[in-house]
Design a protein around this nucleic acid. Structure first.
Lengths: 218, 218
DNA sequence: ACCTGAACACCGTTCAAGT
DNA sequence: ACCTGAACACCGTTCAAGT
């Protein structure tokens, strides 16, 4: 076994892992090179030896989180269930690390995105979608996932400023219930559902809606 | 008519309008209070008299852009066409002002978001969606729109660093075409479609997929 | 009431200098 | 090869002082 100093040597992996911890704890604004280097007991500039800049660090952190999602194996299921599994994997990853919601759209984390679109596309094809429409269908599923991701990220950002999820949601439901009856009949009507809905279930309902649409177009 | 100095007096409207111009020209990073105050020929702190902080300014700018979308009137059409019109209105607004993609998810621009979800929800209801599923369906449509918005914003951000849309897309299509055949059969297969697809058409295809799904669940 | 502009407390990033 | 830490060029925001 190699001799070690009190703390491990600085390495790209250790930087990325620590960055993920800080992002989970404080969101994107919680990660600064100064705070990161303090936690790593090194100088601010040292990080630049292992990582080009903050964008690359964020991309690497996103990639590390998504690697777990990509480890899943959707053999011996229906294409529909395989897509649900991939989507839920993404949802859970985003739920656990909301800051990746803001990263996924960017092309910085492209390599992981491509793998996910590939997986979805293969299953869309297995559903029997004609060649001309497969790309649209896979993109639609991916865009929907990104949309939910972005909202999750925004909600998490709001929570950094204090209030818990239940509080925010309760206040929001209250606000919907008190909207003008003539102008907002729909939102008033669904205010109760907003108050006690399950994010994961709602996400899956959206996926199922798109899957049903694909089922027809097929 | 009131007497005026050479330039109009500072006002919240003038600040927001100028901010939108700067955001359109240089994205979110192109808007700083220093550059804004220079363009408005005033001091950096003066803006704070009319606007609480940068978040509020971004929310106000987003609201001003979305106000145009909300001016549309979808009377005497089918619910499906009404939803398509709302969605396309959003798409065009985001296409013209990509930076709002990053703002829409946040609750800062909530008032405009609520109006849009209300409109979508009313049409979902008109489609005959049962009460228990209307909220899910409207949310799914809205999330999809946000997802596309986020990607547009990211693409626009990438374009700030130089290359045009055609260049980026061409390079990306090339990259997909050259991916490993065993690992990325799907992406390789649709590389040509990526190269010459129309963003607006693809967006509408996604909306139609969800609408078709709603048509079944109904 | 509204505006000025210096000052404060931060950022990401660079780079000469060390080991 | 890898790390240090001061320095640079920015930010958003505040606030005493002006008009």
């Amino acid at each position: 076994m190699a001799t070690r100093t009190a703390h491990d040597a600085l390495s790209r992996d250790r930087i990325v892992d620590t960055a993920i911890e800080m992002l989970d704890a404080g969101g994107e604004s919680g990660l600064t090179f100064r705070a990161l280097s303090t936690r790593l007991k090194t100088g601010a500039g040292a990080i630049y030896w292992h990582v080009a800049n903050k964008d690359e660090l964020l991309a690497a952190a996103t990639g590390a989180v998504l690697a777990d999602v990509l480890r899943g194996d959707e053999a011996d299921t229906t294409p529909q269930d395989a897509i649900r599994a991939i989507a839920l994997g993404m949802f859970d990853a985003i739920d656990g690390h909301p800051w990746i919601g803001g990263q996924l759209a960017g092309l910085a984390s492209r390599s992981a995105s491509l793998r996910i679109i590939e997986r979805i596309g293969q299953q869309v094809q297995a559903m029997g979608m004609p060649a001309g429409q497969r790309f649209f269908a896979a993109s639609a599923l991916y865009s929907f996932i990104l949309g939910v991701a972005g909202q999750n990220a925004a909600n998490a950002r709001a929570r950094e400023h204090g209030t818990s999820r239940a509080e925010t949601l309760g206040a929001e439901a209250q606000l919907w219930a008190n909207l003008d009856a003539a102008e907002f009949p729909f939102l008033r009507g669904v205010a109760a559902q907003l108050g006690d809905h399950d994010d994961r279930e709602q996400f899956l309902a959206g996926i199922d809606l798109i899957l049903a649409g694909i089922g027809i177009a097929r």
